[in-house]
Design a protein around this nucleic acid. Structure first.
Lengths: 306, 306
DNA sequence: TCGTTCCATGAGGCGCGCTCATGGTCCGGC
DNA sequence: GCCGGACCATGAGCGCGCCTCATGGAACGA
């Protein structure tokens, strides 16, 4: 049995090839020769005993086995970064604080890649990140907005492209296998319409692609009226703009309504209102890392004091 | 900035040094020279910019930074194993099933390191592992017997030396922080004595080091007799041997009595009998992995059909 | 047919991780 | 006190593995 293990540079090559969907492109990205990439991939495939990429005229496309390997490779690389950052931080804390030094919760440092859906990135993360940076200046957060469609932010985490994802969690989109997570806030939907409109129910309802209608469907079923028409827009920002301009009404979650202009009237839907769960998703490895835990702590703290 | 990353063999060295608490010991364990270990650790420390081990006359002891680094190193290595195993499994599934291939939950394969206390390893695991191998031939289980003393099997799991531990779970030994687990069986203690003995209560009581007396203490308190004498032996196997030979009586859990010879009489203690909980302990990371879940499933299936 | 754009392959240089050999330091024993 | 042993450190040298350079083959479009 080949006890050969995969070196980090081999993992990087495989990740780059998947991203570039081409050997020569990956070589350019990595500052290597196309030959080096070809040799490296071949060696990796030999060690694993599996073909990772289907080579074609138009580049290289990963096989199912390759997809898996790449996703894990990204996670390994990320964990190596974490190892280095946390070890350095621990050493620095030890040198500075001297003495027996707090075993945990000392200095936290290193990069933190966050994937979030739009309204969370705009309204939920900024205060949390401000508090995080204030407490731990060494952390370097990086937020990427990901549309909550398909595999959504959880997919980014599963594929190793993010350390933690801010996602909507529900029965129709549970936490995927192999990932861990938790609910941060249960936020209510409200009825929004142009302020001062005499008959908002006569306006067309607008919806947006990311909005999971399953949250509001039950509520609609219990109503004694249905909207005149339903149109669909790009995102919740566009919905808010249309409502603000007086052209539509909508059912929107609280997070999308943060900082809504006064031209938008927000009406609480009462005790039977629909709600959605917003939570975090991360990998089991990262769940143990200091940076991820620190962010979750700040997010939890916000819940009490928004 | 040194963009150098840590190679798997460097991680292995660091882990081995932590385990052996000595450079030369780690070298022996790895089949390397003491010099190689010294060079490797020094290089790793240089790359990380942190001292990982305090070298002394009596070996090497990890610094706080070293502890962190080792813990992460074990995770990285484990994740690399998972990468290889899952990639191979995906490739095999692809080759066999052909077609678009199930994205998940298909073939389960890879190493599975189990720590168990003696009687569980002897009587609980074999049927579960047999069923596991039958269902998933790709899994490579490895059972290590660990005395349920001190940190016990849970300690093995916490330290990354096992993926799952079979442990006794109770108020005096709860599931440690940071680990997850569950109860598999609630098993009763029985009174055992030499078959045909006219007055078994006159025999001395034997106990063994691993047996947590807290389980049986309450029961003894409710009895109207106390044993003539109490002696302590190595393990439950020795206890059974002494009872079988006619020299003693004992209070033993069902698992230790599996396959007891006919020379041992087992007496049910009735509805007020003491019981103990046997369960599994694993890390939150491993809890999500396919192999661990598969084993737990088999163990649960056994509960119904022992 | 030629040019372009992919990936594959063979030969050679060179860095890195290994071993061997040796040295330094602290300890306990006679 | 001095030696022997158990540690780890360090320098020299060797060989394997990874990279580059150069070249080849295959597919596609003009």
């Amino acid at each position: 049995m080949a006890e050969h293990d995969l070196a980090p540079h081999e993992l990087r090559v495989v990740v780059a090839v998947e991203q570039a969907r081409s050997f020569s492109g990956a070589a350019r990205d990595l500052g290597l020769t196309q030959s080096a990439v070809s040799h490296s991939v071949r060696g990796t495939e030999k060690k694993l005993g599996a073909v990772l990429f289907e080579r074609g005229r138009r580049g290289a496309v990963p096989t199912p086995a390759g997809e898996r390997a790449v996703a894990h490779a990204r996670r390994v690389l990320r964990l190596l970064e974490t190892l280095a950052a946390e070890t350095r931080a621990a050493a620095a804390a030890e040198a500075a604080g001297g003495g027996p030094c707090a075993p945990d919760g000392g200095t936290v440092a290193g990069p933190l890649r966050i994937a979030a859906f739009r309204s969370a990135a705009l309204h939920l993360l900024p205060p949390a990140l401000a508090a995080l940076r204030a407490r731990h200046p060494g952390i370097e957060p990086e937020v990427r907005v990901v549309r909550e469609l398909g595999r959504g932010t959880a997919g980014e985490v599963a594929d190793g492209r993010a350390d933690i994802g801010i996602a909507t969690i529900g029965t129709s989109s549970p936490i995927p296998r192999g990932l861990v997570g938790g609910v941060l806030v249960e936020e209510p939907y409200s009825f929004v319409h142009p302020a001062g409109h005499p008959a908002p129910r006569t306006l067309p309802l607008v919806d947006w692609a990311e909005n999971c209608t399953s949250y509001t469907r039950d509520w609609w079923a219990g109503q004694d009226w249905i909207p005149r028409a339903t149109t669909r827009t790009e995102d919740d920002g566009a919905v808010l703009a249309m409502v603000s301009a007086g052209h539509a009404m909508a059912i929107m979650p609280a997070l999308s309504l943060t900082g809504a202009p006064p031209s938008v009237a927000v009406v609480d839907l009462g005790p039977a209102r629909p709600t959605r769960s917003v939570g975090y998703v991360t990998t089991s490895e990262q769940a143990g890392s200091q940076v991820v835990r620190a962010l979750i702590r700040e997010l939890r703290a916000l819940r009490a004091q928004p």
